[in-house]
Design a protein around this nucleic acid. Structure first.
Lengths: 217, 217
DNA sequence: ATATATTTTTAGATAAGACTAAAAAAATAT
DNA sequence: ATATTTTTTTAGTCTTATCTAAAAATATAT
């Protein structure tokens, strides 16, 4: 049985791997997990000894099949609990991360499957991210970042590249929500900002924000 | 903020204090928490330094006001989560303890109050134990053990002195549930066993079992 | 009252996971 | 190609919560 900390590392490596498929660096993990590189190295050795990652000094790491399986279990738990918190306990999408970070490590053979059934098998969490099923399978939606849309093109806000509370609060303030239909009115070539229109209002979106919005066209 | 382990000690001391109001012994704690007396001593020093217990070498401990407050918070969380597991996730009363032991240590300012509201402010957990409210107040029901009833006397099974999974499974097997009306048919003076009758069947209850059944007369 | 048994504490060790500081390796720049 | 910077690892330390073994205090029994 893995520790809280080991599970966290596996989950984190999985997430970074989505963007860095051929080797996740020690520093990248340290940054995401808010710890020191030396602590990461220690843990990588431990996970490698358990055959959950492939680790060669200075080379970055990759999850093994087993490591990936465990990472997906943790992600499944995290996303189901987030769904529970929002749908049943009336939390906002920007309030659930910290609590789900703890709940995702509760150990039980049956708990998460029972929770999933209670929630009636949701397929996406409150941030639009897909929830892996019992076998680790999830619905992968093809999206592009808002930055890639042309003037006049339309799409739907599907999910986020950055789900930090800070970004979620920004979207709250700007009245942008998942499933909103978006049309690009204009693109400013100088700073890559995007002028968009939703059903209810118009908005100016900076490059930084635009690249964190995943659009289904 | 207290650790998982510190919270567990406070909760355990609170429970033992119900039966040993003037000083909880190191060994009693060690037994309940499944650890060694020396480990308990270490922790007692720590809790005393934090002013959560009154501890004098060799004298046993007592919770301070603050220690009791925290213990009741942990018990509140435990019982609300047990209620959730049974009422929402369809667990049986003998399956929830281990999971609630973990859930009770989730840290959040708002989680447990939101859960309580979602569950519509239950006053008793699945084992008949009262759930402390936000302020630590709970409904204390006057009960006596089945052993104290006279022949011919009636009462209702209200709660249990022992809520171990083993005892709960025993009650399942014997078809005894909370709220069952019970009448004492006969008492065997030789071994203090009790012959009882419920709405549906008659049963012979050993002394050991009888003293763990709390009856509201 | 004294011997014996039990309980509790102390001392020292261990494991997990983090840290700092310094060394080693790899990447980048001139 | 060499110097510089950045990244990663190593070595050693710290904290938390355990443990064992031995010592000290308390309780029990004769």
């Amino acid at each position: 049985m893995l520790s809280f900390s080991e599970e966290n590392y596996l989950k984190t490596i999985y997430h970074i791997e989505q963007f860095q498929p051929d080797g996740v660096s020690t520093n990248a993990i340290a940054k995401k997990i808010q710890t020191k590189a030396s602590s990461v190295t220690d843990m990588l050795k431990k996970l490698a000894a358990k055959q959950l990652i492939i680790y060669e000094k200075y080379q970055g790491v990759q999850l093994t099949k087993e490591g990936k399986k465990i990472a997906l279990k943790v992600i499944r738990r995290h996303r189901l609990w987030e769904y529970f918190l929002v749908k049943k306990l009336n939390y906002r999408w920007d309030e659930v991360h910290e609590i789900a970070e703890q709940l995702e490590h509760i150990k039980s053979k049956t708990l998460i499957d029972n929770l999933e059934e209670f929630l009636r098998f949701p397929k996406f969490d409150p941030h639009g991210d897909p929830i892996p099923d019992k076998n680790g399978k999830m619905i992968l939606t093809k999206t592009i970042s808002l930055l890639e849309l042309k003037v006049g093109q339309k799409g739907v806000l599907d999910s986020l590249k950055d789900s930090s509370d800070a970004f979620l609060k920004y979207l709250n303030k700007k009245n942008l929500a998942l499933r909103d239909r978006i049309k690009v009115i204009d693109i400013e070539p100088y700073d890559n900002s995007v002028h968009i229109e939703t059903k209810t209002h118009q908005l100016l979106i900076s490059k930084k924000v635009a690249e964190n919005l995943n659009i289904k066209v």
